[in-house]
Nucleic acid binder design. Structure first.
Lengths: 224, 224
DNA sequence: ATATGAATTTAAGGATTTTTTAAGATTTCC
DNA sequence: GGAAATCTTAAAAAATCCTTAAATTCATAT
């Protein structure tokens, strides 16, 4: 789990979760400081996104508690606009402070900046298309934020399709790209892999939305 | 010299300089990107405060130039309020973005937060991932709090995997990393060590959760 | 509507990769 | 120098994946 989000507002939380999942992060959501504290005993997120106004233990108290025990970066999200609140956040060891309403792009940029500084590693290269994301460094495919098991050929095939999203790729092109032009295999094995892929990434494999067949030509990947 | 300030506006620069000096920082002031670039050849500040609107080379160009050569944190100060400018700053590798008019207390807090994250992160001698911890100074591995005996090759292998948690490492990479590219040994010896490791750190070695095999590629460590 | 060729589905065998086992080689430590 | 631990090799076993081929469904044109 990459990110812990502690946020009272379910609507905002859902928005953030959807967006960050799409960017290839996995995210756990807690609505209270107490719940988040429990969760932290068992897990070690790469960063914590923290709302200040929480029921029970407030964000500042939580921030202080976390900072005493863990070195994890904390990014505060707050509706409070007073300078004093921001300063309090920094004093308690927060890494940054983002004022609400949250701009999702700025949030993303800040998370990226903080992770880079804290872990010195560029976040893994991911291709995202709608609810599907392909992490090229971990060789993992996620759909709606959940891992999908794909094996080598399926992975290559999907990657090729998604990289050319919207473009129709001929069967020959796909086959040569993955098997090599001088392969012994037959063109037809491709269709079997297509089927396997569809059964894994289509909501209704009988009516494929993502991997569309272009009659007489080949296949085309479309963002849903 | 702790801080490099690149700022066109003399009045603001004087204010910042006075305040930060009072806080115990030493600060060097340049008014242009070109001048700052020259100065950087000879000096290595702990952080750069960078105005965007500069005569000649602008702040974005300077930011990009610096990021290519140095790892120093950059805090952008900008009168531009557009979201796009802020995102551009982050994209070019800035650590944070503070909008003008500069609030000197916020500036101070941000500088403090960035410096703490960039320089005071205790280069932890132990890596923790879920129930597994590796103490790099004593070469000891613990699982569920209990010591696990691992020998040299196993230790190196596990460390390499855990350090790259979530990433798939090819067999070749792992082998070269531990045995050296010119080793006489065979790639296959790796798999035997993997087996030994799994028998020690997996709850059910038949169904490995931590050390996952990525078919046709290699292995990936996952936090449980 | 029907014929035709293209695409899909299914299942089984073959191919490949990984895991396991065990024995021989090497190193380490006493 | 010898015993124990560790590392490597090799080969059999198991697991997984890939391909093939044949049956079925589907889209298009006549």
């Amino acid at each position: 789990m990459d990110i812990l989000l502690v946020e009272n507002n379910m609507e905002l939380a859902a928005l953030i979760q959807a967006f960050l999942n799409k960017e290839g992060f996995s995210l756990w959501h807690e609505t209270s400081g107490e719940g988040a504290a429990d969760w932290l005993q068992e897990h070690h997120p790469k960063i914590i996104l923290l709302d200040i106004m929480l029921p029970g233990m407030d964000g500042f108290a939580f921030c202080q508690m976390v900072r005493r025990q863990y070195d994890v970066p904390i990014l505060i999200l707050s509706a409070k606009s007073e300078k004093e609140d921001q300063l309090t956040g920094f004093q308690l060891g927060a890494d940054d402070y983002l004022q609400k309403p949250v701009d999702i792009d700025i949030l993303h940029a800040k998370i990226h900046a903080i992770l880079t500084r804290a872990y010195e590693k560029t976040p893994s290269k991911t291709i995202v298309s709608g609810q599907l994301s392909i992490d090229m460094s971990s060789h993992k495919v996620k759909l709606h934020g959940h891992d999908i098991e794909v094996n080598a050929k399926e992975y290559e095939l999907l990657l090729c399709l998604v990289k050319n999203e919207g473009k129709t790729l001929s069967k020959e092109f796909l086959f040569n790209h993955i098997w090599g032009a001088d392969s012994e295999s037959e063109n037809q094995t491709l269709t079997v892999h297509i089927k396997m892929l569809r059964s894994k990434i289509e909501d209704d494999p009988r009516k494929p939305k993502r991997i569309q067949t272009v009659w007489g030509v080949g296949y085309r990947y479309e963002e849903v």
